[in-house]
Amino acid sequence: MRYVHLLSLSTWFSSFLLCFGLAACGREALRPIQGLNRFLLQSASSRREPALGRRWLASLSNEKGREKIELIDLRSRRPVPLPGLNRPDAQPISVSVSANGERLALVRQRDDQTELLLYRRSLGSVQRLELSAKGIPRQVSLDGPGRILAVQVSRDGRWDVDLIRLSI
């Protein structure tokens, strides 16, 4: 009986501390999405460069020392196939995804070349995008429909941002 009293007192005290803490700070707190984070932790030895679409997470995941572009369907918690995109001789640098997960823009290093590419998932096609003035692409950002691409470019010793309106 005494034990039960002590237990309820301790529960009450913990609740009081929690409420008091939240009220005193008045702070908003980030709430981790536990199940998805567990999946992300277990599915790759490391992961970087996150890019969110409506229900998609594109990132560069590393497994057994090889980095590749991965697109995860957050609803089913499964990676989706990206045929023809990842190559053993290429090192991805940056990735961005359209809101519906159909288009991926990416920068990758292959041999001595840094390539700016657009991947269309439904076609499984990789299209190389050319810059109007010579430069080395570094970072990409697609708009929601995947029609406009912003790309950070190293050019003449400084960083520029080019906008590419994709015609198809």
Binding site: S141, A150, V161, D162, L163, R165
Partner: peptide
């Protein structure tokens, strides 16, 4: 490959010394 995509410099790009980390 590149077809007819239109490439343009981001607004303000010519005046700024450096622009990084673009996000649309």
């Amino acid at each position: 490959g590149s077809c007819t995509n239109t490439v343009e410099r981001a607004p303000g790009g010519i005046l700024q010394r450096s622009q990084q980390d673009p996000a649309l």
